[in-house]
């Protein structure tokens, strides 16, 4: 892979991460069900070359450059860390998704996609409603319903919550039968993980959970793991996967055409509007965490 040299702070994208905030996090690597028992899989994490897998007796393992790494299974994924995830940093504790434990939930990986972008750009795109009518036309949005009504963004217990997010959606989910005003709640519990809660088209009293867990392979390459925890009983797993793949394939060319690829944290570098309130808070939150990997610090 060709190196890209940046004039501002000469970093090479392939370099190993030295940012302690990111090193000490748990990072998603792969859906456990997609691992071949006894096999050896390869990927990258924060610039390091990773080997991982599941043994024939079902033990997960991971190593980087010959060094054994801690592993944990959460929500059907293998997570690992290049630092000390349990030490000190509260972000290191894997976050809870209580809904995923409900007995009638379908939890699944709706696909893991490699994208030439940075992890924070992928998170911001997931938080963004304004692009629905233009990028996900006739699915998540459609003209003339382009307005993003004001919504609430707060930080609770070290997590970002965006609430009262209302948007008209022609086909909000694979099980939807017509247009609806969707109410979303977004939650950012981890710098590179984001989820949304949205009302279930067939049962408005419950909320589906859709999340992306972003694996930062390098500062400018990611693998996005799409996690579904659904109440939907009608759509097949393949139907859900296909819907998510359509949505994601619409986002991918946008993400790969954003420059700079790393997320600029200086608020003057890009021009936010009221609809970008969650992104404004996200950038500020990353600055306050002292995160420097995959971003251009303010």
């Amino acid at each position: 892979m060709a190196s890209v040299v940046h004039s501002a702070n000469v970093t090479v994208t392939d370099q190993r991460c030295t940012d302690p905030v990111v090193l000490n996090l748990w990072h998603p690597i792969a859906a456990v069900l997609e691992l071949e028992p006894g096999g050896e899989h390869r990927s990258r994490l924060l610039g390091a070359h990773l080997t991982y897998g599941i043994t024939s007796v079902g033990d997960l393992w991971a190593s980087a450059d010959g060094q054994e790494l801690p592993v944990i299974e959460r929500y059907g994924y293998l997570w690992t860390s290049l630092g000390s995830p349990e030490g000190g940093d509260s972000l290191g504790i894997p976050f809870e998704i209580p809904e995923a434990h409900e007995p009638d939930r379908r939890n699944m990986n709706a696909g893991s996609f490699q994208v030439a972008t940075s992890a924070p750009r992928a998170i911001e795109n997931f938080l963004d409603m304004g692009h629905f009518p233009y990028v996900h036309t006739d699915l998540l949005g459609v003209e003339p319903h382009t307005e993003v009504a004001d919504y609430q963004v707060d930080i609770h217990d070290g997590e970002i919550w965006a609430t009262d997010c209302l948007f008209f959606q022609p086909v909000a989910a694979a099980s939807a039968t017509g247009g609806q005003i969707s109410e979303y709640t977004y939650r950012v519990p981890h710098p590179f993980c984001v989820m949304l809660y949205k009302n279930v088209p067939t049962d408005p009293s419950r909320r589906d959970v859709i999340a992306i867990f972003v694996q930062a392979m390098t500062e400018e390459t990611v693998r996005v793991h799409n996690f579904y925890s659904m109440v939907d009983e009608t759509t097949s797993d393949n139907g859900l996967r296909r819907f998510q793949q359509v949505i994601f394939s619409q986002d991918k060319p946008i993400l790969e055409n954003q420059r700079p690829t790393k997320l600029p944290l200086d608020p003057r570098v890009e021009t936010p509007i009221r609809a970008d309130q969650s992104a404004i808070v996200y950038r500020r939150w990353l600055t306050e965490l002292g995160l420097t990997y995959a971003v251009i610090p303010a």
Binding site: S3, H6, S7, A8, R259, P260, R268, V269, T271
Partner: peptide, 13 residues
């Protein structure tokens, strides 16, 4: 020759 990525110009103001 290494390729230099140009600075992104701030736009506000």
């Amino acid at each position: 020759t290494p390729v230099i990525e140009r600075d992104i110009l701030p736009v506000l103001g």
